[in-house]
Nucleic acid binder design. Structure first.
Lengths: 314, 314
DNA sequence: GTTCCGCATGAATCGATAG
DNA sequence: ACTATCGATTCATGCGGAA
C-alpha cells in the first residue's frame, strides 16, 4: 500500500503554482477539501501581476488544473472565479475554451454561479455597458460531492433586504410593530425563521455583510487595498460555507493578498495558499497572522452588527 | 447591380425557420435590423416543443444562424437568449460550443448580458441551487453597430437603499401603512431624479414594469401562459429599445406565442415572426392582432402607472 | 449620538495619439 | 501596421466632516 503523506496546513508558499502543486510531498493526492481561486485574468494587470496572453491562457492553466485535480478529495469542489474581458471590442473566448478543456481533463462542470457585482467600475462606451458580473465556475471530480446548503441560507430577502436595507433589524421590527398592526410582533419570529435557500446568482446585499472586529477589518481592508484584484471577503466566504466544513483544508493557488485564507481562518477551516509575487505573499502572511491572532483570542469575531471602527480605512 | 427585394413586414410565418429563412424572396439580404429570439433549448420541453438533442444542438442551429447572418443589416444585432440545462448532474456545454461556432461563422460575440430572474422556478436539489439567470448573447456582423443606450436608462442607483436614506421617519411610517404600493409620496420626486446607464446584468425591477391597457395585458398574459418558454415582455422590450429605432424590422425566428412581436408593435417597430407549431402560430397571430388594434386606437398604450385590471391574472 | 451631503476611488474600456 | 500610453467617460460605495 502506498504511503500517503499528510499535507501541511495553515501555510503559505511563495512561488509558482504549477511547480509547487506538482510536488506530491507538499501536496499529497486527495488532501484538499475545497479550492477557491481567482487566477490572474488574461492579458490584464500587466504591471501588477503577470499577464497571460489570452491565446495561451488555456495552455497555461491546464497543467495547474491537472494538479488541482490530483490534490482535491473526490468529494471536494473547485471554484474558479473568472471573467473574460473585451478584446478588440468583443468578448474573448478563452474562458469558454477553458471550461471545455477542463472537462476533457476529467472535471465535471457542475454549475456556473453568477456573481453580480452591483458596484462595478463606471464608464461609458459606444458598444457596451458596464461589466457587472463574473463567472464562478463550479467543478468537481465526482457527481457526488459535499454541499452544505443550509450554511448559506439567507433571510427571505426581497422585502426586508431590499426595501428596508438601511435599517437594522431591530429598528425594522420596532417600526413594524408600532405602525402596522396586522403584521404584529410575529415579524421578529418571521424574520428569524424565514430563511430560504439562495439561488445561483450571488449578490452581496446587506444581509451578507460580514462585520468584523477592528483588527480583522483592518487586515482585510489592507488585503483588498493593495492587491489590484478586488475579491471581497464575502465571495470566498460564501463558497467556503457552502462546500466545506470545520477543519477542512481550503486551497487558493493564486492567493493574492490572502482573502481566501482569511475567510478560511474566520470559519475555522485550514488554509493552504500559493502566491507568486513576493510582495503579495508577504502581505498575505501578515494579514492572515492578524486574523489568526484574533481567532485564538475570541471565539467568534464575525459580528452581525457593525463594529465601530477605531482605525481609519485610508 | 443586384436587384434587392423588399422584405414583407408585420407578418408571421408558420413553418421551419431554417427553410423559410433560406428563401431570399421572403428574406432578402440585410433586410432585418434586429433579431431577438429564445430558441427551444436542447432536450427540454419535448412534449410542448420540438426538443433538440444537446449533442446535435450546434449542428441544428448553425444553418439557421447562417441565414440570420445573411438577412441582418451590417449594423444590426442578434440577441440570443439561452441557458444550458443540467444534464446528468452537470451543465451541458452546447451553448459554449455554439458561441465558438457562431464566431467561426463570422459573428462577433460582443457581449453576454446576464438576465437575472429574481423569481426563478422553485425547487431544491442536493447539488445545485435554483437557476436564476440566463444568458442573453449579443452577436453582431460588424464591430460598429447601432446601439441606443439612452433608450434604456434607469433611475439612479439602487432603489430601496437611496430612497429610504433620504426619507424622514414620518415618510417612512406613512410608507409602511400604505403597504403594497411601495411608492410613498416622496418617491415620485425621487423617481424623477437623474437617470443612468444600466449595466450588463438585466434585472426587471419595479421601474421596468410595463403597465399596459387591459386588452394588451390580457394578450400578453395569454401569450406567456400558454407558451412553455417564459419570456417576459420586458426582455425583448429592453433589447428592442437598445438596438432598434422606430420602423426598424425586428425578427424572431422562434416566436412562440408572439412576445417579441408584441414588444415590437408596442414600440412601433415592424415585426417578422416564424413559428413552427401551428398552435403557437395561431395564438401569436391572435395576440398580435389585439395589440395592433390598440396601437391604432391609442398613441401610447404603455403606461407608467398601473392600470386597474378588469381581468384577474390568476 | 445621529443623519446628511460631498468626495475620492475602484479587476474598466474605447479611441486617439504617439512611437 | 502594430503596440503602448493617455484622456474621457461614469456610478455605487464608504468615509469624513458638518449640521
Amino acid at each position: 500500500m502506498m504511503k500517503r503523506n499528510k499535507i501541511n496546513t495553515n501555510i503559505l508558499y511563495n512561488g509558482d503554482s504549477a511547480k509547487l502543486l506538482a510536488d506530491a510531498a507538499l501536496f499529497p493526492d486527495k488532501s484538499i477539501g475545497l479550492i477557491v481561486t481567482s487566477p490572474p485574468y488574461a492579458d490584464k494587470r500587466k504591471k501588477s501581476y503577470d499577464g497571460v496572453h489570452p491565446a495561451k491562457y488555456v495552455a497555461w492553466f491546464l497543467p495547474i488544473a491537472k494538479e488541482l485535480y490530483r490534490v482535491l478529495k473526490d468529494d471536494g469542489s473547485f471554484i474558479l472565479n473568472i471573467k473574460e474581458h473585451p478584446q478588440n471590442g468583443e468578448r474573448g473566448t478563452y474562458v469558454l475554451e477553458l471550461i471545455l478543456a477542463l472537462k476533457k481533463q476529467g472535471w465535471f462542470w457542475i454549475e456556473e454561479y453568477c456573481w453580480y457585482k452591483k458596484n462595478s467600475f463606471p464608464g461609458k462606451w459606444p458598444n457596451r455597458f458596464r461589466d457587472s458580473w463574473e463567472r464562478c465556475l463550479h467543478f468537481t471530480k465526482d457527481k457526488e460531492f459535499k454541499m452544505y446548503q443550509d450554511a448559506v441560507k439567507v433571510p427571505i430577502g426581497d422585502w426586508a433586504a431590499k426595501r428596508f436595507k438601511s435599517m437594522s433589524e431591530n429598528d425594522f421590527i420596532r417600526h413594524i410593530s408600532k405602525n402596522n398592526s396586522h403584521l404584529g410582533r410575529n415579524v421578529s419570529n418571521w424574520l428569524d425563521k424565514k430563511k430560504v435557500y439562495p439561488h445561483n446568482v450571488i449578490v452581496f446585499e446587506e444581509e451578507h455583510r460580514l462585520y468584523l472586529s477592528n483588527v480583522v477589518e483592518t487586515a482585510v481592508d489592507s488585503s483588498n487595498k493593495n492587491h489590484s484584484a478586488i475579491f471581497p471577503l464575502e465571495l470566498p466566504t460564501w463558497f467556503i460555507r457552502l462546500f466545506s466544513k470545520k477543519d477542512d483544508v481550503v486551497l487558493d493557488p493564486f492567493l493574492g493578498s490572502g482573502t481566501t485564507a482569511i475567510a478560511a481562518v474566520l470559519h475555522k477551516r485550514k488554509y493552504v495558499g500559493i502566491e507568486l509575487k513576493e510582495e503579495y505573499f508577504k502581505e498575505a502572511k501578515k494579514n492572515i497572522k492578524e486574523v489568526q491572532k484574533i481567532m485564538t483570542n475570541s471565539e467568534s469575531p464575525i459580528k452581525k452588527t457593525p463594529v465601530k471602527r477605531k482605525i481609519s480605512r485610508k
